[in-house]
């Protein structure tokens, strides 16, 4: 296959074309699209959503799912804010506390999924309600606003048009790509996602893969939760409520296979960019925000449909899977 042929077959090429065309059309229709303010809004949205999407993506890679992603982010956000407001923790300690809490939540998900042998769907549905209830119970549905100045500055500081949050988002993207692409545990995860039985027979530990993937997902949820606190400047227990759709939409639009084994990090980033672009386009064109919902839903269907077509053409994919 030639270099160009390979490029054309890549997951993300169609998306990249779509994004460039969409952005071009939008900037022609609405010149204010290219103002620094707008680019900033899109970039901040990108930073948050990409971490959320990768948090789900690392689970999708092993063919599981994490419904509790938003609830974990919410619990961490609330604990992060609360630890600063009530315990007076310094920023670094609060961040560490948040990361540890998120990791622990993820570990619980992974351990329960592994030990029970049940689908991660039902396990994380249960922990979703546990974490969500806990964050509502801790805050009594109020917001914590005793956020330290350092965190607030992190959420609002800019270098020219670039938000400081890129300092977290970019390393997270690179680390995830390196982890899944170049490290042994990452490759083992993808192998497990592709075929759990074959992976186990070749000596890959199911316990390690499942628990590690869920733990990393909890860690990323924690990062995203604390970034949201920085952006909103308060910790509210509604953080994470609307992560679920985006967390699946971006990877799926980017070409991820929900049954596991294949996870395109670059594609996911482009998927996030598509979502950010749609959001911004609808704001600029002043249409009802619920069009975003409809459009996002249609986009998911179109994306998974396209993936399935590609699978069919390549002769891979399941022959009879109806459920």
């Amino acid at each position: 296959m030639t270099r160009w042929g390979r490029l054309l077959r890549a997951d993300w090429i169609g998306l990249a074309v779509l994004i460039v065309a969409g952005a071009a059309a939008l900037s022609l229709a609405r010149p204010e699209f290219l103002t620094p303010y707008n680019i900033d809004v899109i970039l901040v949205g990108f930073c948050l959503t990409v971490v959320v999407a990768l948090g789900q993506g690392i689970i999708i890679a092993i063919g599981h799912m994490n419904l509790a992603l938003g609830a974990t982010g919410c619990l961490v956000a609330v604990a992060f804010g609360g630890s600063m407001q009530f315990w007076g923790l310094p920023t670094w300690a609060a961040v560490l506390f948040g990361l540890l809490l998120g990791t622990a939540c993820g570990f619980v998900n992974g351990w329960l999924t592994y030990r029970s042998g049940l689908t991660s769907f039902i396990v994380t549905l249960a922990t979703l309600s546990i974490f969500k209830g806990a964050s509502l119970g801790i805050t009594e549905a109020q917001s914590f606003n005793g956020i330290s100045d350092a965190v607030k500055a992190f959420g609002s500081d800019r270098w020219g048009p670039l938000p400081e949050m890129l300092l977290v988002a970019v390393p997270v993207v690179l680390a995830t790509a390196l982890f899944l692409g170049r490290t042994i545990p990452g490759r083992q995860m993808l192998a497990y996602g592709g075929n759990p039985n074959a992976a186990e027979l070749s000596g890959i530990s199911r316990a390690r893969v499942v628990i590690l993937a869920h733990t990393l997902s909890g860690l990323l949820a924690a990062v995203a939760g604390m970034m949201t606190v920085a952006r909103l400047q308060i910790a509210t227990p509604t953080i994470g409520d609307e992560w679920l759709i985006a967390s699946f939409a971006a990877p799926v639009i980017g070409g991820a296979v929900l049954s596991g084994g294949h996870f395109p990090v670059a594609g996911t980033c482009l998927g996030v960019l598509v979502i950010a672009l749609i959001n911004q386009a609808l704001v600029l064109l002043a249409v009802d925000p619920f069009y975003v919902q409809v459009l996002l839903g249609l986009l998911i269907l179109a994306a998974v449909g396209a993936n399935r077509l590609r699978e069919a053409r390549l002769g891979t994919g399941p022959t009879l899977r109806l459920s």
Partner: peptide, 16 residues
């Protein structure tokens, strides 16, 4: 018709 898992299909239609 698409033979996709109902999770992702209904995730999309929920929003639609």
């Amino acid at each position: 018709t698409t033979r996709l898992h109902s999770f992702v299909v209904t995730l999309a239609t929920m929003s639609i």
